[in-house]
Design a protein around this nucleic acid. Structure first.
Lengths: 215, 215
DNA sequence: CAGGTTTCATATCAATCACTACGAAAGTCA
DNA sequence: TGACTTTCGTAGTGATTGATATGAAACCTG
């Protein structure tokens, strides 16, 4: 979930960059430009980021953008994958947490910190970039929604595991619990954009954990 | 907070409509057209609703829109006030609730229902319409944020009143509590837009109330 | 070097953006 | 009725949108 600024993200693209290709080579760093595109989408949203905004931030011209990434939609989807990180990473984080309660708390804390970073835009790209849009971008909105649902689903599975292992009361409503955590994270994005500072978000997240079921 | 579809909202505009005015009269219902504009902004957002979208929904032409409402920004702000209702109404609702806990619970339930209405777009206009946008709409974003902050502030004051009357533990963190409720409402908007149904949102809201302090 | 391939910068494309000039139409007021 | 005022529909404004055509430039291969 957190943005990976400064981290080298290993993307699993089909184009193998180790193969020597003929023709004039790219004159810019494809990953670095993608990161700038991600930051632009993060700050200004999908439809409300223009190609001009993107090319200015990426330091390339429009034709370079289109030959390197396809079109605006594909560029956004690639930027979104860079932002969200690989699903494997999150699966790992959920597995490594001792309990689902820890996992939820860590997610909330990580969100509060990521949404108020000094080097990045405020809020969450997944929450804000396609929060609204014209009918023309319905497919992009739905792809973003699917990423959110997948995160929620993985957390719910983690909770179910704890219930099965008697770390949570029998009959715990794992669905509502996972929904609650995701809703809080999305809501924190709005508040962070409004200027709520990190300390307040962390205090709120801490408060919210009081709703977590006790044995 | 809920949209007032079907309700006549008394707006406190300086233009007194009871005064006979000279010249050709308006050929459309100003309030009804405003409601259609609100629904359009609600569904598609501020920047991502075009003047064409708005005039089509309102059943008027562009010049009529501009003479009646000013420009796109003023139309949106007026539509937002129609959506949010008068501050007096919300103050009243907060006062009428027996306790701040009831007030918070009612706000959550009202939000869950309003965000999944069959006659209205999903989610919350205040949460989604300006969730992202170009720098050109920063002033509009800030006005929406101010409405959100005012709602949060009023809830916090209501909580403080309960603390003073010993209905809540001394030292209750009213700020975090109010922040939590607002964050949940904003988050529910995102989930409602993703397709989460009313039943799930209500169950989640109910679950979240477990975080409310007990005496 | 010559041939092939890809990216480069320049200059644009049609479509849409928010917004408005203009004159006819429709009302009030004397 | 005849001014006066305001809104009406038509047709556009310049600017910006996402996306490209074009030919020169830069690389690998042979």
């Amino acid at each position: 979930m957190p943005g990976s600024i400064g981290l080298v993200v290993i993307t699993m693209k089909s184009t193998d960059t180790t193969v020597r290709r003929t023709g004039r080579p790219l004159s810019f760093d494809r990953e670095q430009a993608l990161e700038q595109a991600m930051l632009t989408f993060w700050r200004h949203g999908y439809e409300t980021s223009s190609i001009s905004d993107l090319t200015a931030a990426m330091g390339i011209t429009a034709p370079s953008l289109y030959t390197a990434y396809g079109d605006k939609k594909q560029l956004f989807l690639e930027a979104m994958r860079l932002y969200a990180g690989s699903p494997y990473d999150m699966e790992q984080a959920l597995v490594e947490a001792p309990t689902s309660r820890d996992a939820a708390q860590r997610m909330l804390i990580a969100a509060a910190e990521a949404f108020t970073g000094e080097l990045t835009p405020r809020g969450c790209l997944l929450a804000s970039a396609t929060a609204s849009g014209s009918g023309a971008s319905a497919d992009v909105q739905s792809e973003v929604a699917q990423v959110r649902r997948e995160i929620q689903s993985r957390l719910q599975n983690r909770i179910d595991r704890d219930v099965a292992q008697a770390l949570l009361p029998v009959g715990t409503d794992s669905h509502s619990l996972a929904t609650l955590v995701i809703a809080l994270i999305q809501g924190m994005s709005v508040l962070a954009r409004d200027g709520t500072d990190r300390r307040d978000l962390l205090a709120m997240a801490n408060f919210a954990m009081n709703a977590w079921p006790k044995l």
